[in-house]
Amino acid sequence: MQFGVFSVGDVTPDPTTGRTPSEGERIEAMTRIALKAEEVGLDVFATGEHHNPPFVPSAPTTHLAFIAAQTERIVLSTSTTLITTTDPVRIAEDYAFLQHLAQGRVDLMMGRGNTGPVYPWFGKDIRQGIPLAVENYHLLRRLWREEVVNWQGKFRTPLQGFTSTPRPLDGTPPFVWHGSIRSTEIAEQAAYYGDGFFHNNIFWNMEHTAQMVKLYRRRFEHYRHGSADQAIVGLGGQVFMAGTEAEAKRFFRPYFDNAPVYGHGPSLEEFTRATPLTVGTPEMVIERTLGFADAVGDYQRQLFLMDHAGLPTEVVLEQLEILGREVVPVLRREFEARRPSHVPSDPPTHASLVAAGPDAPHHLVAPVRAAETVVTS
């Protein structure tokens, strides 16, 4: 199972000091977090994509390439690539280029984002969010899998004899996750292609998360990619740890109360009861995280949000030490001990996709088994 961290890249004042980091300091902090994640043995670092204050990660591939040059093992991913407002040609070329720079240590998560004004900023209509996600992703698959593309759709100018460059590394496109909190159409899209489904459940109760994952699993099996429990699932969450629960809550409370995403709403206690947010000891984090599999089934990737809400970088790095040294080794053992042998332990990697060969379903634009199911059902 893969464990890692994701960052939304918010530039938030520290509520205990009033100091706001500069954008440059925040970018540097995200880089240090990625390097620390590899150092302590985590598997994945993922960055969001935002184009509005108070967030800085507007150019994920630039940042991930910079991190790739300083790391050797960690998988570099996105926690959102805006498939709706970013042209598929741009995505195809940027991430294939990053594949080459990172020697294959790349996957990405498609998402629609949660900032409404971003659509008109990039000339799109938010009312077309789902159709944009569907059409743009299908074009992206063709750009990565066909040498020459002739295409016409609804939301961009046609392509005639177009070849995306560079071609994917080893002729193998990156593995794709589809991230959604509440859109069943996105879970359906992930299932249709046999891609991964990531539920970033930092705001939602586990009952809702379980319903979304169950839908994806059911449709994954419907399209004949495998049994429902073999579907590729990822979850997000947030933790803050200390020696005692009281100490963790005392330190984290002012950051929670003023967080730009969920501050000034439910209390810390209410939020930790209703969502996967865990503020307490490492043992509490282990117990809570193991419970996720009871709710959604055995899954393949767990990402934690560690640097949100103005937490000082040095504190975040200390949290990563605890996560990597005390929490993740236990979670690895416990998750693998309970996992049935026929259920994948990890999501596909570049190496595993290359080893599967050019005739593997991953290389198809529209999976044959899925297309057959649509016709016959």
Rank of each mutant, 00 (worst) to 15 (best):
M1R: 02
G4H: 06
P13D: 08
G18H: 04
G18V: 09
P21G: 04
I27K: 01
M30A: 02
M30W: 00
R32S: 15
A37P: 05
E38I: 02
G41V: 06
E49Y: 02
P53F: 14
A59N: 09
T62R: 09
A65S: 14
A65G: 15
A65R: 11
F66I: 09
I67S: 05
I67F: 10
A68Q: 03
A68R: 01
R73I: 06
V75W: 13
S77D: 07
T80D: 09
I83E: 00
T86W: 10
D87R: 06
V89W: 10
Y95C: 02
Y95K: 02
L98W: 03
L101A: 09
L101N: 04
D107R: 02
M110V: 15
G116P: 06
G116W: 08
P117V: 13
V118H: 03
P120G: 05
I126T: 07
R127P: 07
R127E: 11
G129T: 11
I130E: 07
N136E: 11
H138M: 06
L139C: 09
L140D: 08
L140T: 03
L143W: 01
W144R: 01
V148W: 13
W151S: 14
K154Y: 10
T157I: 10
P158W: 12
F162H: 09
S164N: 04
P168D: 02
L169S: 01
F175S: 02
I181G: 09
R182P: 11
T184A: 15
E185G: 08
A187T: 15
Y193H: 14
G194D: 03
D195S: 13
H199M: 06
N201F: 07
N201W: 00
F203D: 02
F203Q: 13
W204T: 11
N205R: 13
E207N: 12
T209N: 01
A210K: 03
A210D: 08
Q211N: 12
K214L: 12
L215T: 01
Y216N: 05
R219A: 04
E221C: 06
H222T: 15
R224W: 15
D229A: 10
D229W: 12
Q230F: 07
I232F: 06
V233S: 00
G234D: 07
Q238I: 05
M241Y: 00
A242P: 05
E247D: 13
E247P: 07
D257Y: 10
A259M: 12
Y262W: 14
H264T: 13
T272M: 15
P276W: 01
G280E: 01
G280M: 05
G280T: 04
T281C: 08
I286M: 07
T289S: 04
G291I: 04
A295E: 02
D298R: 07
Q300C: 13
R301C: 08
Q302Y: 11
L303M: 13
L305Y: 11
L305S: 05
D307K: 11
E314D: 14
E318K: 04
E318D: 12
Q319S: 11
I322Q: 08
I322E: 06
V328M: 08
P329H: 07
E334G: 00
E334C: 06
E336I: 01
A337Q: 14
R339L: 05
S341M: 12
H342Q: 14
S345A: 15
T349A: 10
L353P: 02
A360H: 12
P361T: 08
H362L: 08
A366I: 13
A371C: 11
V374F: 12
